[in-house]
Design a protein around this nucleic acid. Structure first.
Lengths: 226, 226
DNA sequence: ACTAAAATGTAAGAAAATTTTAAGATTTTA
DNA sequence: TAAAATCTTAAAATTTTCTTACATTTTAGT
């Protein structure tokens, strides 16, 4: 994840950088808004942490610059502890959260993670809500799976696998692809984890082992639902 | 879709307008409640986004004005993070959802879409004052909970959690969502606060621990009431 | 302002359910 | 028929949820 960090107080920028690098994020650190704009224009950023009060342009304007470019990644603003809370609200427009100085770096890290989590959640919400296939009905919102109107209790991973297959109805999906989409991590050695899960899903869907109705195996390639 | 946007902070109203126009909605933007009332009286609106705290009339009164006219389209309220919880709860009555400032415009767009979808799906609003589920009766107005006609004394947080679950009957609600809705704060690390409250509610509802009747846990996802 | 009671939050270990692993069995392909 | 791919199974490892006790905060009454 590429994170832009902008603060004209060198110590703070360095501190933030130190803690975030520790979480294996890539940091684009800058002390002036000019540098920040350069990064915004050239790097594919995933997150920004901006100080509100800078010498020249203030952080709010950078935030606005980002939003005006229709970039939607999360932004956290750093604000000095001011009495006037309305002012904070005003200055953090378009941001996702703010942290008042002085702050505990660990709290900042926690907020970064939380904002990033929320962002991916809202970004993934693009698929259709309900899917029907033969006797199978899957409701993403209710997190429910019905087989001939009878509820089938699936575990989170089982549900995600079935949903992915159903969303790619008609296409063959390899174990590798399934793993990377559901687990959201790189597929390394050929563990048969996916296979075991497929087995359990078939079991719960009361599939005929020799001739599955829903999840078919395409030999040498993967699985598919027609 | 015609959306009314009311916020006396010009930047926020403009930002919201920018993002919603991008989704091909028609925006009626205003900075004062007077303008808003003019639009409400003259335009056939489908949605409203209202700031709770305005200089003159507050957004809640506008919300009430809309509901008193028997208009049932969805309303999302914008609230500052700082305003105290009780006040927010009071002020968002009659609204469908709220978003705390600062917010990511993308999140707002997602919530608008979700509220609109729900609205068109079931056009009957969840406006009833009392909810009955099996032996459980919840009176929103009286802030009371009856189990087989016997009053169960719930603390404010317990009541809010139960109410939220009941209002989302049939859907699974994650701890994270529950926390953000009830506490109106951003959910950071995995605290088990929600879990402990669920436990206490179950206890008061005399749930069978191994097989709860009302609040079911959906493993890896959250809780739900059917 | 002080105190007691109630409400809420935190943390740690127990319990429950899921997920991974690994090894042997079976099926398919060439 | 042998090799490759997939399936099956069960136990081990991990994750999530539950429970409990206690700490802290808030509220209400003097």
């Amino acid at each position: 994840m590429n994170i832009l960090v902008l603060d004209d107080e060198k110590e703070i920028a360095d501190l933030v950088e130190l803690y975030l690098k520790n979480e294996n994020y890539t940091i684009y650190k800058c002390y002036t808004s000019e540098e920040a704009i350069k990064y915004i224009d050239t790097v594919k950023l995933d997150f920004a942490i901006l100080d509100v009060m800078l010498k020249g342009k203030n952080g709010f304007e950078i935030c606005k610059y980002i939003r005006d470019k229709n970039l939607t990644f999360p932004i956290i603003m750093l604000t000095a502890k001011i009495e006037d809370k309305d002012k904070i609200t005003g200055l953090t427009i378009g941001a996702d959260d703010y942290v008042t100085k002085p702050f505990n770096p660990l709290e900042l890290v926690a907020r970064v993670k939380a904002a990033a989590r929320r962002y991916t959640k809202y970004n993934d919400r693009n698929e259709e809500e309900n899917v029907y296939i033969d006797g199978l009905e899957i409701s993403k919102e209710k997190h429910k799976c019905l087989l001939y109107d009878e509820e089938i209790i699936l575990t989170p991973i089982e549900f995600d696998i079935l949903l992915y297959l159903v969303n790619n109805r008609g296409n063959v999906v390899s174990s590798e692809e399934l793993f990377e989409k559901v687990w959201k991590e790189k597929y390394l050695d050929n563990n048969n984890t996916v296979m075991v899960h497929i087995r359990r899903i078939r079991e719960k869907l009361k599939e005929d082992t020799k001739n599955p109705k829903f999840i078919k195996t395409v030999w040498g390639v993967g699985y598919k639902i027609e």
